[in-house]
Amino acid sequence: MSTTASLPVPALSVRHLTVAYRDAPVLWEVGWATPPSGLVAIVGPNGAGKSTLIKAVLGLVPKLSGEVRIFGEPLAAVRRRVGYLPQRASVDWDFPATALDVVAMGRYPRAGWLRPLGRKEKGAARAALAEVGLSDFADRQIGQLSGGQQQRVFLARALALEADLYLMDEPFAGVDAATEKAIVSVLRRLADQGKAVVVVHHDLATAPHYFDHVLLLNLRAIAAGPMAEAFTPENLARAYGGRLSLLDQAVAAAAGAPGAAPRA
């Protein structure tokens, strides 16, 4: 994996990606490539299609057209190298499972179909849980964890996959400041190990501090590139459209002069 990281092959690239739920397109001719490694943010207003982009990349929603490559290959060839952290609200936290049970799901691919998880895999799951600082909660039912702890359980499950490309959908949603710091440091560590981490992020104020690269998304890829180049007030204004309150926030975040706000 260190060899691929040193090659200029993007960790993730999409071309002409169009996705529609029923008749309404949610992503329209999106073309985008990440760097081979590093922390990448996907930023855009609610309903911009950020989650849909991740799901389309992972084959969870059908594409109308377009092509997705991961490390230059189709998904099926590199499934083992891809990790996913879904939106927290996507599962039922009342499910009778412990934190360790959930993290252990990240080891299922190592065990394979129909075989029980071995001792080694369970140990790896415990280690992943320790990495996010939840060792003491291993046997706690997941519904009895706080929102931030649940988010960290998901993170630990993703870590347990030992992937090279991670796709994370709003891992900071509903977490407190301390948890956010802890998650960021884990992500940083992954990036330092040469992995690519793509994160849907909704907080414009922190995005430039946490991430190296950004994709501004709203139905289309509005702008993409290194944070300093792409995260400009003009681009934010375009991504956030005529939504003024968000626009102000965006402009303040980019700490520049207000850009030309079309149709404001």
Binding site: L64, I222, R238, G241, P262, R263
Partner: peptide, 23 residues
């Protein structure tokens, strides 16, 4: 269409039309 979308940023301006195939 592309210019409209990128320039206006008003991607959802045609939300009313989205019942139809807005492609």
């Amino acid at each position: 269409w592309e210019i409209y979308l990128t320039r206006a940023g008003g991607v959802r301006a045609f939300a009313a039309h989205r019942g139809a195939d807005l492609i």
